[in-house]
């Protein structure tokens, strides 16, 4: 069942000999050692495992690794440019948009894909975009604020 699967991961090519039916989530977290992508429910309900596949926010617990062959995968570890954080990451820090931080990678990547298509969203639009990302700590108010602040900064030519 093992096959060779190639894709780009955080800007670098990878080639893996794996069972292509395994979920992207566990291949990322174990085979590739990128543990920033979190397991929260395993069934697509919580968004903690969200990654970007060709720029779209995707729940990695619901995707077989063979389905990302030849595609561009970005995880939370790949969002910063060297030491320079992405404006979303900076905004989450500045707005205290996290408590335990377990939902944070999924929130940031979902927001990233959303802002690509909606660069100047209202607070309501942000809340709607994040509706299926769960946060048990109740950081919702600040997450919306942070995404809005990041949007403003990015639109300002960042």
């Amino acid at each position: 069942m093992s096959e060779t699967i190639r894709f780009r991961l955080n800007g670098r090519p990878v080639a893996l000999d794996v069972d292509g039916g395994r979920t992207l989530l566990w291949v990322l977290r174990t085979d590739l050692g990128l543990t920033g992508t979190k397991y929260g429910c395993g069934e697509g309900h919580c968004g903690a495992c969200t990654v970007l596949v060709d720029g779209e926010a995707v729940r990695s617990c619901r995707v077989a690794v063979r389905d990302v062959a030849e595609q561009d995968v970005v995880t939370i570890e790949g969002l910063a440019r060297g030491a320079a954080l992405h404006p979303l990451q900076e905004a989450f820090m500045a707005h205290d948009a996290l408590q335990c931080g377990y939902c944070t990678p999924g929130m940031i990547l979902t927001a990233y894909a959303f802002l690509k298509k909606n660069p100047r969203p209202t607070a309501d639009a942000i809340a709607a975009a994040l509706e299926d990302n769960l946060c048990r700590c109740g950081a919702h108010t600040r997450i919306v604020e942070a995404v809005q602040a990041a949007a403003a900064k990015m639109a300002g030519g960042n």
Partner: peptide, 27 residues
Amino acid sequence: FTRRDARSKVTGQAIYAGDVRLAGMLH
């Protein structure tokens, strides 16, 4: 003051128990 652990949490570097990887570890 804003959270001091925020940077590690927004970059995916913060280590939770399930993120620990040891040589020879089994799940």
